[in-house]
Design a protein around this nucleic acid. Structure first.
Lengths: 128, 128
DNA sequence: GCAATAGTTCAAAAGTTCTTGAACATTGAA
DNA sequence: TTCAATGTTCAAGAACTTTTGAACTATTGC
């Protein structure tokens, strides 16, 4: 009934560069950021990242990103809506997120089987 | 006599974002980058980073930064002169290094004993 | 209530990173 | 040649990170 699932997020002023860099220095998490960046209008659920790893492993990686202050996770029903903390990151490290995204955008997208997603597949992941 | 110590550096096009982020996602290495950024005119030797860790540990961290393509190391005599690979990083990830440095600049500088260097001490490290 | 959906937590295992000290290598100078 | 200076390599250990599957929680809809 209550829905009070605790999902701690650091305050903007407690987001540190070292934590953000550590969070992003991982292929899976960088790929998650890529998915989010291609989709900044509509929040994504965890399930939409399943091409990048198992449910458990994604839960782990998304927690890392959340704890570092890179993403915000909003529980709604049984789902969690994940968004980039763009405003906070821009305030804290101006220009940083954009250079990451710009690079991530024209990178091939590795998925869990080691092959690479086509643009068509990416569009599908992005809009489903 | 020969002086042919091999110090492999990745080519510019082989510098990857994930490797750079992993290399920078560490307090010691971020502090090294901070020292280098305050000193971009004159190359620094490894010995000038000794407030950040032991000789062995710095050798390890500087190798990480070199292998990721973040710094260039030029042997000269018994010393190694370390510089940021600014041109290459700017070509590969435009704006990235500057946002890192801008953040690093107004960060307190932790040194190995857990205390923080004053600006005077930093200047001393930088120009000795 | 019961089942389905969406995600988390736990403990174990495997792998990676970092620090340490001792031994080594290279260069330059007395 | 011998010494000091500067840094590297090696092996061991401690501490983290990541992945797994099984068990769990919370919510929604029937």
């Amino acid at each position: 009934m209550s829905g009070m699932t605790f999902l701690p997020h650091p305050d903007t002023e407690h987001i540190t560069l070292a934590n953000v860099l550590t969070a992003l220095g991982d292929e899976t998490r960088l790929a998650i950021i890529g998915h989010l960046a291609r989709n900044e209008e509509n929040a994504m659920t965890c399930g939409q990242f399943l091409d990048l790893g198992s449910k458990t492993s994604l839960s782990y990686h998304l927690a890392k990103l959340r704890e570092a202050g890179v993403v915000h996770v909003r529980p709604e029903g049984t789902k969690r809506f994940v968004t980039l903390r763009r405003v906070d990151l821009d305030a804290r490290f101006p220009g940083f997120l954009d250079t990451i995204i710009a690079t991530t955008r024209h990178l091939p997208f590795a998925c869990r089987d080691g092959n690479v997603l086509t643009n068509a597949q990416l569009a599908e992941v992005g809009t489903s």
